[in-house]
Design a protein around this nucleic acid. Sequence first.
DNA 1: TATTGTTATACTCTATAACTATA
DNA 2: TATAGTTATAGAGTATAACAATA
Lengths: 145, 145
Amino acid sequence: MARIPSETAVNDLVQSVGLLIRRIRAAVASNELSLSEMSVLARLSREDPATTADLARAEGVKPQSMGTTVAALEDGGYIERTPHPTDGRQMLLAPTAKGLALRTSSRAAKRTWLAHAISQLDKADQETLFAAGEIMRKLVDRDPR
Amino acid sequence: MARIPSETAVNDLVQSVGLLIRRIRAAVASNELSLSEMSVLARLSREDPATTADLARAEGVKPQSMGTTVAALEDGGYIERTPHPTDGRQMLLAPTAKGLALRTSSRAAKRTWLAHAISQLDKADQETLFAAGEIMRKLVDRDPR
DNA sequence: TATTGTTATACTCTATAACTATA
DNA sequence: TATAGTTATAGAGTATAACAATA
């Protein structure tokens, strides 16, 4: 426990967070995929095939919202769906060759604006930033809607 | 300078930032105004009357985008516009009594979900969080679009 | 020419509600 | 009943483009 933060401190923090996420979106938008889509494609590329519901839980959005993202990725040919072997309700999602190619293209990784910008920070700032990421998660988890 | 962060560290950070801003939006949505609108109203309440262009610069959005936010606030009767005394192009924006009432209602301030959640963190986490806010700003400012 | 502001249009992201199919 | 997924609809937030008025 500490104290209640000043209103301007909170406002500044919210603005910083908003600016950063907009800046990230703008940077990603120069690629073929949007930020949400890239995030899901990245997850499917490094983890096992997953269902829409799995992805929604992992990304912290509603299943219907994830349905939209997943549909866009499938329309673009970046992921494909196969029926679950035993559960007829589920569809397993996995990256296609096209999806993997976009991901593994070293250019895509190196061009990530945020990774590059962070690499220019000194070590202390990097550590503060990533530590704050976990604190943000604590805030959200502690008091979910 | 430090090193290039791992991709998963960056992805986790982006997700944390996204989760937090969504959580904040959801919390604010229970009030009469949206997050963008509250932010602008707060600024006009603590600073001098400003133009749409001023506000756009201060909040880091395009003037057209700010025009939308400002129009919503004016439609709701939270702010009002008066012509600039010497510059015929400009309209000065200031809160109305209704806008100030919403702002100064202590309930509005105390009910801010984020301020409350932050108050429950220990002092070290609070400091890390606010320090990270400034680092995020550095990231955005260092390499603007 | 530059700036302020407006209007039109569109995209991203996400949500809620209502529904079907399967477990 | 609970879960997975789909479809429809809506709202917040922001952007780009094109324009008129004023500086």
